[in-house]
């Protein structure tokens, strides 16, 4: 679908390099691990995988992590993706989850790292999906193994673009945050789950910067949330290293093992070095 493979490749390389560097720092590469072959083949993924995971082996998720996204991206700018974790099925907890949109100019949407006792069981966010693409999530468990699951999303029809709808509004309220704490057994939560569900929203254009200005022929600089830390008291819940495939106004709905009475703190930093901080009580918010 993309008529500019060369440009896309360059942009992709430079953006994935940023995240690649982060990943290299985080995990030693273990060349001995065998490649799991049961995962569906995709030419894009085959060329992308070494950039992100080197030559590490990746196994099928087998229930450790599950992904859900609509079959068709209704709005290319806002595609909901839902991840469920079942660490009971793995040897050890999930430490890191990497979320990838194969065909996007910047495929690595986000890398989430979870605190050792955060107990995150569910994480939903929203993505930009530029073209027909696999959306995949790769979980790393404490034993260093990688487990992958994926779903295919068809691009939206009509004039839906993965771009901002209301650019002035996005900038006018930059950095504004909202945290919702859901009461137990709210719709969309797992029944009988003791985890607490919250939703964090951050106003930010999360601008891709990959479009070329037709008049000047220069690329617009990217402006997005690159780092996010959510903690409770002194306990880390999760961090996110983000990219431009996360939708405008980044939105994270998650379930974790909340400690009653301890405040939720959020720190976000964007590519222009702006820092946004906020904190809230952890009791259910009025609906």
């Amino acid at each position: 679908m993309n008529p500019h493979p060369h440009r896309t490749r360059n942009a992709r390389d430079c953006l994935s390099l940023v995240l690649f560097t982060v990943l290299l720092g985080a995990f030693p590469i273990s060349p001995g691990q065998a490649e799991e072959t049961s995962v569906p083949e995709s030419a894009t993924w085959s060329s992308l995988k070494p950039d992100v995971f080197g030559n590490r082996g990746i196994e099928a998720a087998s229930g450790i992590i599950a992904i859900d996204a609509p079959k068709r991206a209704e709005d290319a700018a806002i595609v909901p993706v839902d991840l469920k974790f079942n660490p009971g099925k793995a040897a050890g907890r999930i430490k890191v989850v990497t979320l990838i949109v194969d065909e996007n100019p910047s495929p690595v949407a986000a890398v989430f790292k979870f605190g050792p006792d955060a107990g995150v069981t569910h994480l939903a966010t929203r993505l930009r999906v530029n073209a027909y693409s696999y959306v995949r999530a790769i979980a790393e468990t404490e034993d260093g193994k990688l487990h992958m699951t994926q779903t295919f999303v068809k691009a939206s029809g009509g004039c839906s673009a993965p771009a901002m709808k209301n650019q002035d509004e996005a900038m006018a309220s930059l950095g504004k945050m909202k945290l919702r704490v859901f009461p137990p057994n709210a719709p969309g939560t797992e029944a009988m789950n003791r985890a607490t569900e919250m939703q964090l929203m951050i106003r930010h254009p999360n601008n891709s910067g990959l479009q070329m200005d037709q008049l000047t022929r220069y690329y617009i600089p990217a402006h997005f949330i690159r780092g996010l830390t959510i903690s409770q008291g002194n306990r880390l819940i999760m961090t996110m290293e983000g990219g431009i495939s996360i939708s405008e106004d980044p939105n994270f709905r998650f379930e974790f093992d909340s400690k009653q009475g301890e405040e939720i703190k959020v720190e976000a930093v964007d590519t222009e070095g702006m820092k946004f901080e906020n904190e809230w009580p952890s009791e259910p918010s009025a609906l």
């Binding site: 679908m1 673009a161 650019q167 479009q211 037709q214 008049l215």
Partner: peptide, 19 residues
Amino acid sequence: NLPRALVSRGEFYLSSYRE
């Protein structure tokens, strides 16, 4: 706002309508 909108979306429109 039209020039800005076309800069943000123009290239995407040109590729997404090709099919």
